[in-house]
Amino acid sequence: MGINIDVWRARIGCFTQPKGTKRELIHGIKLCGGLLSRQLHILLIAALLLLLSGNVERNPGPRTTRQSQLAVSASGVRHTGVQGNSDHGDILRGIEEQLKSLNTRFTNFETSLQTIRDEQSDMWREMDKLTDANAAQSQKVEQLESQSRRENLLFFGIPDDGGKENSNDSEEKVRDFLKTKLEVESSRADCIPIERAHRLPTKRHPRPIIVKFSAFKDREYVSKIAKEKLSGNREVRVSPDFTQAVRNTRRQLGKLLQTYREKGEDCYISYDKLVVNNTVYTYDWDKDSLREVGRRRIPPASRASPTPSRARDRSGTRRESPGQYSRRRDSLDNSQHS
């Protein structure tokens, strides 16, 4: 009895693609299942499955140089990737710690900056209070200085003997000035009480004489006569003793006064104010311009006709005061009688 071909092939192995169907091949394997060990059976099944796939090389042989290099490169890349991932993790952890430290420092900086801002705001408020207090004190000092000068008058144009003149000499020259220039009676000029009189230390020649009267009414009397007798005289004149701030303000107002007069406006300076058509202005140093502060109150008796000393006719010529008119009338009467 001969050996079945399928059994023989199963015993010696198969090195070519079987021509039979897959069913027949599996049936032959079942026949020799009792002869092969369990491990060989598993290996044969795996080999058959690989052969059935048709895409596996039967005997690949040893690796070429190129394949070895690629394998080594792949292994190095995997090792470097693992090591690189570890290094990157350390770097990221370091960056996170630095960011936390920076956030903490930034928060502390914001807190300190807010504290500084609060302290600065308090300082500015205190500075504003001190500025207001200083302005109020300066205004009080200015008022006190003005009050202390209210009995003073400055006499310009009195001959100067140089440094040899003393207070008594200055007083005598002032009394002589009252008699000759202001035409004050000798009896009254000698009786006007003067506390002190002396030259001011200025480069102007002749140096002006400052006089402090004992009574304010005597000072006003001399000032009123000087306005009438010395009107328009710039060399020989009598002026009030203003403070430096008032003098600076009047100097600026004087420039504007000339402009308004050229326009034909009725204007004059009263202390540190400019009155234009009964509107009172003061000089604003911050804005370098005039600032309206109110209107001049006109007495009911003088509203119908302007004040004689400041009245003007239609041609713009200032009208004469009642005193000037009476003196001119007396001189005309005396000339007619003579």
Rank of each mutant, 00 (worst) to 15 (best):
N4E: 15
R11L: 13
I12N: 07
K22V: 00
A46L: 10
R58F: 12
T65Y: 13
R66V: 09
V72P: 01
G76E: 11
V82M: 15
Q83K: 12
S86C: 04
E96K: 08
Q98C: 14
Q98M: 14
L102Q: 14
T107E: 12
S112P: 05
E119V: 02
D122K: 05
K129D: 00
A136I: 00
A136K: 07
K140D: 00
R150L: 06
F155Y: 09
G157Y: 10
D161V: 04
E165R: 09
N168S: 11
E172P: 01
D176L: 00
K179S: 07
T180N: 14
E183F: 08
E185G: 02
S187R: 14
E195K: 09
P201W: 02
K203Q: 12
R207C: 06
E220M: 01
V222D: 10
I225G: 00
K227E: 07
L230E: 02
N233D: 09
V236N: 04
V238N: 02
T259H: 11
G264L: 15
G264E: 11
L274F: 04
D284N: 11
L290H: 04
I298L: 14
A304E: 15
S305D: 13
T307N: 12
P308A: 00
R314W: 15
R318K: 08
R318D: 01
E320M: 14
S321R: 09
L332G: 11
L332E: 05
D333K: 05
Q336C: 02
